[in-house]
Simulated scan of single mutants.
Amino acid sequence: MEERKYLTTWRKYIPVIRLHLKRSLNEDQSFKLNITDFESAGDRGKSGYTFSLSMENGKVINNISGSAVARDLYEALRTDDAIKEMIQDKNVKISVGKTFVFSIKTTHVSAYK
């Protein structure tokens, strides 16, 4: 298995993700990804590119070990300083569905735990 094959693709999307992440503090955001960007990076076949990535305080809180696409996205996010700062003290849920729509839902972490 080739490691990090989607990292370059996700890094191309970082400026767009950054913008939507900022906007997601006020309302849920979504935008369409270009499927050919991902198909040229690696063929996922029938399993597709769908995933859900949940983060709290910048740390993954769900299991993404089975999804190279999600793992590489997280790597791209956590290595971007602006995004790293934006996701502190937040719950961020990112998902990509079968229609290749990238969705971001952000809420503030409750101080009452």
Rank of each mutant, 00 (worst) to 15 (best):
I94F: 06
E39Q: 15
R11D: 08
E27F: 12
V96H: 01
K59Q: 13
R4W: 10
S65W: 02
A70S: 09
K90H: 09
L53K: 00
L33R: 07
K84M: 05
Y49I: 07
G97V: 00
E85T: 14
L77S: 06
T79I: 01
E2C: 06
A111D: 11
R71H: 08
I64L: 03
S52E: 15
S52T: 15
R23W: 13
L7T: 08
D43V: 05
T99V: 03
E85G: 10
K22N: 11
T79P: 01
F38N: 03
I83D: 06
Q88C: 02
V109W: 00
W10Y: 09
E3I: 09
R71S: 15
S95V: 11
E3Y: 09
S30E: 14
I64C: 05
I83C: 02
T106P: 00
S103I: 02
K46P: 10
T8K: 13
G45C: 03
R23S: 15
I104R: 01
K5F: 14
V96K: 03
E39F: 07
F31T: 09
S95T: 14
A76R: 03
S24L: 06
K59W: 05
I104D: 00
K22M: 10
D72G: 06
S52Y: 02
K98A: 10
Y112L: 13
E39L: 12
A82D: 14
